[in-house]
Amino acid sequence: MSRPPSLTPPPAARAYPLHTARGDFAVVDHPVAPGVEPRGTALLLPGFTGSKEDFRLLHAPLAARGYRTVAVDGRGQYESDGPVHDEAPYAQPELARDVLAQAAALGTPLHLFGHSLGGQIARAAVLLEAPAPASFRSLTLMSSGPAQISGPQQERVKLLRDALAVMSMAEVWEAIESMDAPEDIADPAVGEDHLRVRWLGNKPAQLIATGRQLCVEPDRVAELAAVPLPYHVLSGATDGTWPLPLLDDMAVRLHARRTVVADADHSPNIDQPLPTAEAVADFWDTVPIE
């Protein structure tokens, strides 16, 4: 589970509901830094159990490089609404269509950036527009692999799905916290347990449906490679969800830029935000401004 330091938007950012043809989605929208020439806009998609706040530490350094960044809660994630029990709206094609609607509402083309589950949803969105995507200028896949997640992670997701079938979201949170390492548990002395607040905002059906998808996702790299976009595969130096050799191979198959962020695991955006932002901006700078 990603652990952003806060749910409060950065000082220069604005949080609001983005109105789209497929409903409203909660976003954090950070403008380009004052005095910096605008170079483009990016749409940032969070991972499984994550939220738009996972990108909090990336906004300012990317703004300083000329990029407006819009981080979004997907349908049923944290502050974006969705059905509680109906899983159908959370099927991957539906979530991919949500992304196209978000891009249309923001104005296209955009740099598309997906973390983990968000990367696979981003991939699906690009493939919906194949062979000539009009909505996107590039695609960055951060800690997001070519197919299903690793065996140990599949077991963790199955445990979560089984728990959600018989327990409330609050009860499941207590179970998760009891199993985490002591250093990973929020300190009550700090104040509000923002991670619990975020967790309780998620819709159970969303977690069940997307968790199942992570465990059965097929390899669609060849399909993606046929779409003429610039690609970037970025990860930490370790990753238990998709081992690095899989990410290395995916980058080769996509003819993608490859970045490995030192001293980072599955969430380089939180573990090492400044080197991650620098790598992302360096890639975006190679994409011609239209």
Rank of each mutant, 00 (worst) to 15 (best):
P109T: 04
L100F: 12
S144H: 00
A132P: 06
S143R: 02
R161H: 09
G107D: 07
G151D: 15
A130C: 10
G151N: 11
G107T: 05
L117E: 01
L160Q: 12
A105D: 10
L159N: 09
G145P: 03
I149D: 06
R123A: 12
L164T: 09
L139N: 02
A163D: 14
Q102Y: 04
S143P: 01
P133R: 04
G118Q: 08
V126G: 07
A124D: 13
R156K: 14
Q154K: 14
S144Y: 00
S116R: 03
A134M: 09
S150N: 07
Q153Y: 14
A134L: 13
A130G: 10
A104H: 06
L100D: 09
L139A: 01
H111L: 09
T140D: 02
L139R: 01
L110F: 08
R137L: 13
D162S: 13
L159V: 14
S116M: 05
P131G: 07
E129I: 08
I121R: 01
I149P: 00
F136L: 04
L112K: 05
A103Y: 01
L127F: 10
K158E: 14
M167P: 04
R123I: 11
A125S: 13
S144F: 01
G114C: 05
T140K: 02
L110E: 03
S143A: 14
Q102W: 04
P133N: 06
H115Y: 10
F113Q: 05
S144A: 12
S135N: 10
V126S: 07
R137F: 03
G118M: 08
A101S: 03
A130L: 12
Q102N: 03
P146Q: 08
A147V: 05
L160E: 04
G107W: 02
T140R: 00
E155K: 13
P131L: 08
A147Q: 11
R161K: 13
R137K: 15
Q153G: 11
G119W: 03
A163Y: 03
G114K: 01
G114P: 00
G151L: 15
F136A: 02
I149Y: 06
L128P: 02
P152S: 10
L139F: 02
A165C: 13
A124Y: 07
A125R: 07
G145N: 06
S135V: 09
V99M: 07
V166E: 15
L164H: 12
S116T: 05
G118A: 12
T140M: 01
F113H: 13
V99L: 06
R123F: 09
K158I: 13
P109A: 05
I121L: 14
G145F: 01
I149W: 05
A122Y: 03
L141I: 04
L100S: 11
A122S: 14
A147R: 12
A104S: 10
P131V: 07
L128T: 06
A130Y: 09
A103H: 02
T108Q: 15
A122M: 08
E155T: 15
L160P: 01
M142C: 05
A134T: 14
A104D: 10
G145T: 07
E155W: 12
A132W: 09
A165E: 15
A103K: 00
V157Q: 07
V99E: 03
Q120K: 14
T108F: 09
D162Y: 07
L112I: 08
S150W: 06
H115I: 02
A132T: 14
L160H: 06
A101C: 02
F113V: 15
A122D: 07
